[in-house]
Design a protein around this nucleic acid. Sequence first.
DNA 1: GTCTATAGCCGGATAGAC
DNA 2: GTCTATCCGGCTATAGAC
Lengths: 200, 200
Amino acid sequence: MTRPVKPKSKTDILDLAIPLFAKSGYAGVSMRDIANVVGIKAASLYHHFPDKQSLYLQAMARAFEDKAQGFAEALTVTGTPKKRLAGFVQVFTTLMSKDPYFRLLLQRELLDGDEQRLKLLAREVFREPFIAMEELAEELVPGCDTHMVAMSIASLILYHLETAPIRRYLPGGKAKHNKPDVIADHVTRLLLNGLKGCSQ
Amino acid sequence: MTRPVKPKSKTDILDLAIPLFAKSGYAGVSMRDIANVVGIKAASLYHHFPDKQSLYLQAMARAFEDKAQGFAEALTVTGTPKKRLAGFVQVFTTLMSKDPYFRLLLQRELLDGDEQRLKLLAREVFREPFIAMEELAEELVPGCDTHMVAMSIASLILYHLETAPIRRYLPGGKAKHNKPDVIADHVTRLLLNGLKGCSQ
DNA sequence: GTCTATAGCCGGATAGAC
DNA sequence: GTCTATCCGGCTATAGAC
């Protein structure tokens, strides 16, 4: 027979805390809230973590780890620079679309993250794919400001996802506009040909 | 002689609360925090507002009112469609850049806003400029998905501002990249000619 | 319109039994 | 590793004096 109560590991707790922090933010989640979803008492959390901030930081680290590897897949596309851009946008959009908790935490960290956390996020998660985008930018447009181009690519993808909750209240907003394929296609056309690439 | 203590009006309180909510969010600001910056005791706030949520909602309403009018200025530019796009991007970028509290509140509402608040934001603040962008899109690219194009214009401007705190930790990120003129110029070129419009 | 005082709850965190 | 019990401070909100 299995034991009636299964002891929780640190990572179990973190995995259950991540959705809470994503939905309500650091100040909006209490230790009791976390304990509730884990199925233990709040005091037991202090066996695993010295305090709430430490739990939060480790939850962030876990939510962001492996992301860099996920992004690396988006860079394996080969072919002409244009094909590679299209492939990258497609894979990156799908990836971000499928992991709403990661996206929400990213949004929250941009608002509330201190220097240390933003540095970690930039260097451990986004550095590699960002450099790949910059290299692609340099190939497509020699001499361009690669940083601005890479950021613009990310902007188009991520803001279309970020604004999903308000889209239906804006003129012309339909449910289909939140689909990763629709977004990726639109973004790719816009990047490659400007607005005139967006004709139907 | 002036009175030693100047009674505070509702709008005085709201104007002082707005920066707090922008910086720390609803859950991150207490009635005592607000009372502190106003220079009164927390209990006195309940003379002006029935509860914290009501204060917050009125602060949002005030932070967002007049914004639609501000945006209307961005639409007064005349000339060819391309000139008008360039003008709109320039004015909109400068406007959003100069009002960081509004931008932060917008970011927070996209994360935490309920249906009612998002509806208000969409209809009272962004509807007009959004429609203007859509009309411009239709002129520039007849038959395009005007909603997606308008959202992409906003994406490029707003995400460059939203990512300002992390930019310096990303490859190639410089302080100049956060300047409204640099962003507006980059975004305009990208929109009009795609990536190849971004050559230096 | 603001104050003091306080109710009542919920927050993070600790001590010590099992 | 989890529990019960508890401390204590901060929170929203109310009552009533000035």
